[in-house]
Simulated scan of single mutants.
Amino acid sequence: MNNLDTNINFIKKTPKVELHLHIEGSLEPELMFKLSKRNKIEIPFKTVDEIRSAYNFTNLDSFLKIYYEGSNVLITEEDFFDLTWEYILRCKQDNIVHTEIFFDPQSHLPRGVSFDTVIKGIHKALKKAEKDFGITSKIIMCFLRHLDEEPCFDVLKQACNHKDKIIGVGLDSSEKGNPPVKFKRLFEQAMKEGFITVAHAGEEGPPEYIWDSLDILKVKRIDHGVQCLNDEKLVNKLVHAQIPLTVCPLSNIKLCVFDKLENHNLKKMLDRGLRVMVNSDDPAYFGGYLNKNLIETSKALNLNLEDIKKLIENSFKSSFLENEKKEKWLEKIN
């Protein structure tokens, strides 16, 4: 068996964690088509293939356009259950034993879909995942950063009714021109309410956005963070504090953050001692779930078995799982 086969075998067999997954971004063309029929929602596509070919975009903004269009078919609790359950079946296939998923209530509330409908559907599927497959999970609610801060306070208030289900809050959507400082008061309030904070930063935005997410929003994890290598002082801080960076390689290629996987900086980040790991982001749109991200990246960057093991260990260490559960899984991997 050659190195590549050994790597692929190891990736498939090893228990894994996913820490950067937008549940709305796991909406496969087949399900979008099915839900549009079920809910009698007009979509600008006549076939599943037409939807699939529309899942082609050139940057973050053109992706977000189809992403929000796709969200329109999600109406009922059953829809959010089906969406989440399909992702769970992928977790089972990819040997993901714990997942921490993002959801975007602000994609749904303006359409008249209630907060309760969204969270109950997602939560019900995750509970079933634990019961049927032993897959554990946490839910993180994201705010859309291209919107104003003020309306987000009402969304936060609604999240407070579901503290038994939602562990933290995050920040996603278009990074450029929407600095973390825009949400300073909101994140202060979220922390007062007991939520953990995370934020997308340093994907298309500059290293300053990573600094501000740490210093102003007090985040425990940086989602993406690939621009950190452009700031030596920042790299030193991230290494010293072992701040997790939830990197999404196939997403970075699809959104032209890097021109090709061979030029991705993940291996450089790993070699610098940064706590990086691999995730799938919006897998239905970016062409691959967790195992595919790991396999394609290990091929393109010539990762060895130790590198892959480190990436998987980092994701367990960076999860919001209880410490004894982390230890148990880390022992299993070793």
Rank of each mutant, 00 (worst) to 15 (best):
E24R: 04
R272L: 13
K309L: 03
C142T: 14
D223C: 06
L147C: 09
G287Y: 03
E50P: 05
K268C: 03
G287W: 04
G70Y: 07
Y289E: 14
D148Q: 10
D172A: 13
N334I: 02
E149Y: 01
I308C: 06
V73E: 01
S26L: 03
I140A: 02
A190N: 12
T76V: 03
G170M: 11
H22D: 09
H162L: 01
Y209L: 05
F143G: 13
I135L: 08
H224C: 07
Q227D: 11
N293M: 05
G121Q: 04
L245A: 10
G25Y: 02
L261R: 15
N279G: 04
I51D: 07
N9R: 12
T136P: 05
P15M: 03
L74N: 03
K254S: 12
K268W: 02
I333Q: 07
N304K: 07
K176E: 12
F133E: 14
S315R: 04
L4E: 15
D5W: 01
I96S: 13
N161Y: 05
F187H: 12
S53A: 02
I166A: 05
S71H: 10
G273E: 13
A190R: 13
V73P: 02
D49Q: 12
L60Q: 10
T117C: 02
F102N: 13
M191R: 15
I210M: 09
H108G: 00
I210Y: 08
V219K: 07
L229N: 13
T297W: 00
S137D: 09
K218D: 04
K37H: 10
S315Q: 06
